[in-house]
Design a protein around this nucleic acid. Structure first.
Lengths: 341, 341
DNA sequence: AGCCTTAGTGGGAGCGCTCCCACACCCTCA
DNA sequence: TGAGGGTGTGGGAGCGCTCCCACTAAGGCT
């Protein structure tokens, strides 16, 4: 059944059926304006009658393109895959691609070997473009992409100076709003648990915290109130313990991720403090964890699905136009109020 | 830069460089045994020197295959995407595919239009095989796949009679173990909150519950102790309320999903009951929610990543051998004990 | 009327592979 | 010594498209 000639109609057969040439059928399929209405109608009828579907491989070979983009997920993040954050981004990407006939390739990069292989993929132009999630500051992939002139869009950026196109959330603004909210609720001693300082996103959230502290006219951002975490639950616990030692009088904590907030809450409870009556708590990301914490965690939501959509849209634009104009998009965040503050 | 001839070496160029014919190079690349060691070495050297990477499109066109498989995610489940369950499955699939040069295509099916389009994809043989997650009983896709003789593997099955290849977890055994554990801890009145009865997985978990109840020599599975949920948190709340009305003396609940367990716990707390002292609680899936509930939820873990790996492996086998031998794999589950029982 | 444009069209050439036939070449055996 | 089998090999013929050149027909201008 699966023989050499599978009986599927080809463009040539459509042409015969429609009584036109191969070129005309190709033009109709690709939406060229240089086709008469009569020919177009005939071709469309023939396509419908025959149930013709273009052969992707032939198209790719002849056209020197692939109609496929890769979504690259580096190893350290494959865990994060479980987060609504990622899945929403992917949903967004999928939604944006639905009307296209771009294919979405999922690519995990775990080992240096896989990284090298992916480099070859790129060099061999097996995809028309690349979507990169959660890039680290020292990730060489974006530079490789740029060098190969391969259209690419990052989710987040590596630094202020990011040159490759990216779509990011307003981390500074989100953090600022969260901390401002704590002050507005009458909290005075607002601490923060940061992400790893070598991650741009972590620095942004810390900046937001500092801005809010300053705006509140508080005694300036005392460095005693800043503890370093690493975006993990355990890191959140460690940082919280540290903060309680340094400043037992803390009455609010802004954690730069929900997971760290969860860790912090455990430590707070162990120390006999109630949330929110003794210490208010705000997280970042608005993940499932936030909703299911006790009390439910107030957190900063990023427009994740929209970010995914935007990433895809931006990439498609970059692929469409040959020239490589970089695009930088920053989407606003929103504070989701629950019971922890 | 991206011109017609991109300067990438072709198989022909490799042949010239190695001083052999095109056919020989092809044979080396495809691992044919009918090549002399001398020729093989020469070709491999030439490939390395030139940095040759086969052109996928040309290969697909000439070989009538695609070296790609699709992972299909139907709409109602795109939300579940956020669950570790899915992401682990995908991770497993990715891991298994890493050593292959199979590509993984992500395909969401949201609308009937998209479903139709995907049918065309299949008919046009744009993929070599299909991985299907969370199929519903009335899902026509598996039958379509079978009819098209397209290799396919389901995650879970539609019924006992499932004919298409599948990889499933031992839902019956997992549920049985969970409920047996409740009895072993001295609970007497063990209720269950089921999934929707039109889902095979829900029926399996209910079966497991019944088996354990019978084995415990309890007064048989009183239908009073079985409440119907729908795998959602709200469904869990509703079912729990119902159970408390029918049997206020319940001292344990087995929820067929963690999300329903979370809903149940809320209702239990509202009714003034403590978990686990008054009522013990067990979930299913071992999701992030389970770990972050208060108290942490004892739950049945499925070997999700292993399921993903197995799905990919089975699919690759099915693609490799032309004949369509169906494979049915059931992997064991494990009770993860936490604080809710 | 003659010329130039433009819209619309057909089909050759080629994209880079795999498949497979034909052809050496070597060894065996009678 | 010759027929009969392997092995290993080269290269023609496609796979189904897109690109582009050549061509026709219909109009617009002087």
């Amino acid at each position: 059944m699966n023989g050499r000639h599978s009986g599927r109609p080809t463009l040539e057969e459509v042409a015969v059926r429609a009584g036109v040439g191969r070129g005309t059928v190709s033009r109709v399929i690709n939406g060229s304006p240089r086709v008469s209405d009569r020919a177009k109608a005939a071709v469309e009828a023939a396509i419908a009658e025959l149930g013709y579907v273009p052969n992707r491989a032939a198209r790719a070979l002849a056209g020197n393109r692939t109609d496929a983009i890769a979504l690259v997920i580096p190893e350290p993040e494959t865990r994060l895959f479980a987060e609504p954050y990622f899945s929403d981004i992917i949903r967004g990407i999928g939604a944006e691609l639905a009307d296209t006939d771009m294919q979405l390739l999922l690519t995990f990069i775990r080992t240096p070997k896989e990284r090298a292989r992916f480099g070859q993929y790129l060099a061999a132009h097996r995809v028309d473009g690349v979507l990169l999630v959660s890039v680290h500051e020292d990730d060489p992939l974006p530079d490789l992409l740029e060098q190969l002139e391969m259209p690419a869009v990052l989710n987040g950026r590596r630094s202020d100076l990011e040159s490759v196109s990216y779509v990011d959330a307003d981390n500074v603004g989100g953090a600022r709003a969260a901390v401002a909210h704590l002050f507005a609720r009458g909290r005075r001693t607002v601490a923060t648990i940061t992400g790893p300082p070598d991650m741009y996103v972590a620095r942004c959230r810390l900046d937001g915290y500092r801005q809010a502290v300053e705006a509140a006219g508080s005694a300036g951002a005392s460095s005693e109130l800043v503890a370093r975490g690493d975006f993990t639950e355990e890191g959140g616990r460690r940082a919280m313990r540290e903060l309680l030692v340094r400043r037992p009088d803390i009455d609010a904590v802004f954690a730069a991720s929900d997971l760290m907030a969860a860790g912090a809450r455990q430590v707070l409870r162990e120390s006999g403090r109630q949330v929110p009556s003794d210490v208010a708590l705000v997280g970042f990301e608005d993940s499932a964890i936030a909703r299911h914490m006790d009390p439910a965690l107030t957190s900063v939501r990023q427009p994740t699905e929209e970010m995914g959509r935007t990433m895809a849209r931006v990439l498609l634009e970059e692929i469409a136009e040959r020239a490589s104009v970089r695009r930088h998009v920053v989407l606003t965040t929103e504070l989701v109020q629950r019971d922890s503050v």
